[in-house]
Write a protein that binds this DNA or RNA. Structure first.
Lengths: 405, 405
DNA sequence: AGTAATAAGTCAAGTCAGTTGACTTAATAA
DNA sequence: TTATTAAGTCAACTGACTTGACTTATTACT
């Protein structure tokens, strides 16, 4: 009874799975296209008008969509477009970084409704969690003033923090946060908030944000190269975030720069903001670091430019690598850095070397600048529970165990 | 009416999609686990006994599964296991390489039933296609002698050839096959055989073969590093082959070896069999090349060993890179080379440098040797139509357009 | 032996989401 | 004014999975 079955299989599905999928498809279509009539949805999803009608009725009753004014367009009965109702769902996103933490609340369409930040003790997770729980409580309070239903419609708490997760001891890696890695963070936050909690690394969160409201909106294959304190890639493959077998996919910052390099230099050592701070002697825990860097970038400070040019060389290589390995529709450069610095980096990276991305038929630029708002990671963290709850995905169709197994 | 709708959406699904998925799930479970009773299947797939019973009845009637002798195991009514019926489906796989082509026929469980090879003119696709069609005809004849139903149960023709596909002119790249790239190969083969034809690159085919009958059997996250005339990675992500946005994902052979390398050296230049042939002055179109290389490897020829050691350094780097980016369960080294050489390469690669794959909880070796049979690419090519027809996958659940759109 | 327990598998009715095809409504084009 | 077109609804239908009771076949226990 309670022995673990060695039989491996994909789960089957049933009408519930079908229905759940079709609801998600409707919401996804409305998110991508803005507002659509029932007839539009029927054509786009291949379902019958009647099926769409039933589903939309239900979604409207459940408060996820609302109708707009009927529009006349040529012959025939005017159509009634529907759009997502932003207050249909909320989520909270939390970014935990080395020196600070940010929390945001977003709605179903990805609008940030509340935000809060605080400093974080890098080596004291249990003290840090108290601070975090305080932030979240504050955010929830703000949310409650915006919508009465907010608590009922809160689908989860998404957490983003630097990876990788679950490794053997790696020595004292200053890019990782060893004390936080060991702490039972998810359990503590789940207990402290009563919410479903999910975790991803910061680059993954960035990619989710880009897909929801940024340059990857509606794309099925996009890679977000995130240049923050560390460096990582958020992978949108087949329309979903790819996590790898242990949740650490995309940790490109730890890639060795060269087969022959005896020094074992990795990308992160040379092109991360940590390396910038080190090189131009800034204190990463400085409160006005962001403004300071922004000023240096706008002033085209020579020391900063020197770092930019060196880093760009490594980043250019990594982009060629990403294109070669993933064949994405586009690569998106994102950063926790001020926009001025991000633009300098982008310009220094261009032009890109030849790669398989040189195609006669490509529709998007090979490299684009993504969201440069430093809150985008928290936004992406918040987008994850929404995406999990409402985006069409294979796993949402399958039956799940209801017994204790 | 015939304008293309700009509305983007995932397709919906219905009972047909559900049913198709559940049939695939049954076949997949039997492939992975060998033989299972209806009760086993019900537990493994989360479906009810009754649902499984109906589906298995139907699969048995359709000739995809057969029952075995009832087995008694403890109390209760003995169970009747079912297994896949190999002759339930067949597919033909075709490998097109620079100097030769191979065709195989496989059955539902991946057993090779017939094989044939021929030399190929590298710059004359229309002459080559005649040769290929002759091979396929021969294979189909052999197949017809094995099973009367073979023609009825032929699910498709899978083609594997060196990528990448659809690029802008890249100069005269000897690793690619420019004349073949321009030729309307799929259309010609489809017309000439009357079969559904699909294309992938050789490393992808290798990965599919590994997943069906090799080291990646049943794995959801595995990367196959294929060292052939060129170098490529076949990506099994979330249990499916990942193709990228233009079908060229995994072309790791074209990755630049270093950000600083002014020479633009790529992996393929230094670690492919082409580079071996060049370095030790072998003629790649030689008929007994394979045996010759096997002999050199077994004799531990110094010139060959020198290449092995140099190549291993680059391959070691690429494996660390793959682990860092994909976080797979395992990396599989495959090769068109003789097993003796593949083993030399594997030994020269080890030990692997540290990476995120160093985990306390990992179940599989970081690097394993895959199938070394030179026919494995043709086998993988053949496995693709079978996989497309019978493996559970998201796209198989969705409704597809039936109108001409 | 005889009975209880256990598990595989079937029967038959039930449920429910999407389908079908006819119909209604409301607009524009001729 | 009428025909045409398109959105959307109505109501009956279909079919795949579920439910719960039942049958069958075997082993474990007394």
């Amino acid at each position: 009874m309670n022995d673990i079955s060695p039989i491996r299989a994909t789960s089957g599905t049933n009408q519930e799975g079908t229905s759940a999928h079709n609801r998600r498809v409707m919401i996804d279509a409305l998110r991508l296209n803005g507002a659509l009539s029932r007839a539009d949805l029927a054509r786009a999803t291949q379902l019958t008008k009647q099926a769409v009608s039933n589903i939309i009725d239900e979604l409207e009753r459940d408060g996820f969509v609302v109708s707009l004014e009927a529009v006349r367009k040529g012959r025939g009965q005017p159509s009634t477009p529907y759009r997502l109702f932003p207050e249909g769902a909320f989520a909270i996103g939390l970014q935990i970084d080395r020196h600070l933490t940010r929390a945001v609340a977003v709605d179903l369409v990805g609008t940030v409704l509340a935000r809060a930040e605080a400093n974080l003790p890098p080596d004291d997770p249990s003290g840090g969690v108290k601070i975090i729980l305080g932030l979240i409580e504050g955010i929830r309070g703000e949310l409650a003033m915006i919508s009465e239903q907010s608590e009922k419609r809160l689908v989860g708490l998404g957490v983003a923090m630097p990876g990788p997760f679950g490794l053997e001891e790696f020595g004292d890696n200053k890019w990782m946060m060893p004390a936080w890695q060991k702490y039972p963070l998810l359990e503590t936050l789940a207990a402290g908030t009563g919410l479903d909690v999910s975790l991803q690394n910061d680059s993954a969160a960035c990619a989710i944000a880009e897909r929801m409201v940024g340059a990857a909106h509606g794309l099925d294959h996009a890679v977000c190269l995130y240049v923050g304190y560390g460096i990582g890639a958020g992978l949108i493959l087949n329309g979903e975030l790819y996590r790898g077998s242990y949740g650490n996919a995309g940790e490109i910052g730890m890639a060795l720069l060269s087969p022959r390099g005896a020094d074992g230099a990795v990308l992160e050592h040379r092109a991360s903001l940590a390396s910038l701070y080190q090189q131009i002697e800034l204190n990463p825990s400085d409160a006005d670091l962001y403004e300071h860097v922004a000023a240096l970038a706008e002033a085209k400070d020579p020391a900063l430019l020197a770092w930019v040019n060196a880093a760009a060389q490594d980043l250019r290589w990594s982009i060629q690598l990403i294109e070669t390995i993933f064949d994405p529709q586009t690569v998106i450069l994102t950063s926790g850095a001020p926009e001025a610095l991000a633009r300098l980096i982008l310009q220094a990276i261009l032009p890109l070397p030849p790669s398989i991305a040189n195609r006669p038929d490509r529709a998007l630029p090979r490299l684009q600048l993504g969201i440069t708002d430093p809150w985008s990671i928290a936004l992406g963290a918040a987008a994850e529970p929404i995406s999990r709850a409402f985006d069409p995905r294979f796993s949402a169709i399958l039956k799940t165990r209801t017994d204790g197994l």
